[in-house]
């Protein structure tokens, strides 16, 4: 973990709420190893009401450009302020934080299920799996077509399946009702998104005996295990989602009890 100033290289508005912000260390130092599923804590500057940092998952790491991509939904005052960043602005980050998705050594069928802005860490995960020679399926969901973000990026690393609530893109309905889940047999599922979606995915995985990892977004203050606010109930008792997670194996959680 370290605290470092980054410089904003670009801030691209992907739809009415979501921004893709690309940052690089201001002092040009090389990024340390960052794993898919890990997150950063962004300091919200010049916003006196906002006190705490905002935890944002790593969307992608471009090693050649020494660049971290952050996909941020401007949902409140803090994230709204962060999304106002322009090229050249400084952004103070604590990073890399938390656990990561397991990249299994075995070949098999991998499914990455994401909803809304929860698709963010799955791009980097898909890339890492792709680099290991594993091809995966992405199953992404959103309210409508404009909410399915970064489609072209995802398509570089696997096959893309989509579901939208209004049916404007892919199948109509929730990802958890997508026909893919009936038609193909998977060995590993990784998921990130709204909790009801992840619980439904977890139940599907459990029912079908598929290994499953989920990425949580519990409310947190510090992001590095000091405040004990973001706890998740596990089979080992209450643990910090920021240090033991955000990625958990389904078997560790008590969701299905």
């Amino acid at each position: 973990m370290k605290q470092l100033d980054f410089t904003v290289r670009s801030n691209e508005k992907l739809n009415d709420q979501n921004h893709l912000i690309k940052v690089t260390p201001s002092n040009h130092e090389l990024l340390p190893e960052i794993f898919p599923g890990q997150f950063v804590q962004i300091l919200v500057d010049n916003s006196p009401r906002i006190f705490l940092r905002r935890p944002i998952s790593v969307n992608f790491v471009n090693k050649e450009k020494n660049e971290v991509w952050l996909l941020i939904q401007a949902i409140g005052e803090g994230t709204g302020r962060i999304c106002e960043a322009v090229t050249g602005d400084r952004m103070n980050l604590l990073f890399p934080l938390g656990s990561s998705f397991t990249i299994p050594g075995e070949k098999g069928n991998y499914l990455l299920v994401g909803g809304g802005v929860g698709t963010a860490p799955l791009l980097f995960l898909g890339k890492m799996l792709h680099d290991k020679g594993v091809s995966c399926d992405f199953l992404l969901g959103g309210r409508s077509e404009k909410d399915i973000l970064q489609r072209r990026d995802f398509e570089k690393y696997g096959t893309l399946y989509c579901a939208t609530e209004d049916g404007s893109f892919g199948e109509k309905g929730f990802v958890t009702r997508h026909s893919l889940l009936e038609n193909k047999r998977y060995d590993f599922i990784f998921t990130c998104g709204p909790k009801p979606m992840m619980v439904a995915v977890a139940k599907y995985a459990h029912r079908n005996g598929i290994a499953c990892e989920v990425s949580l977004e519990n409310l947190m203050a510090c992001g590095f295990g000091a405040c004990l606010c973001c706890i998740e109930k596990t089979i080992r008792g209450n643990v910090c989602a920021c240090t033991e997670g955000p990625v958990f194996n389904l078997n560790e959680l008590t969701w299905l009890d």
Partner: peptide
């Protein structure tokens, strides 16, 4: 002690509430 149930934290203007 296992502490209290989640949620244990709420940000408030220029501060935070906790019930760890």
């Amino acid at each position: 002690r296992e502490g209290n149930d989640y949620p244990r934290m709420a940000e408030t203007p220029s501060g935070m509430l906790n019930s760890v």
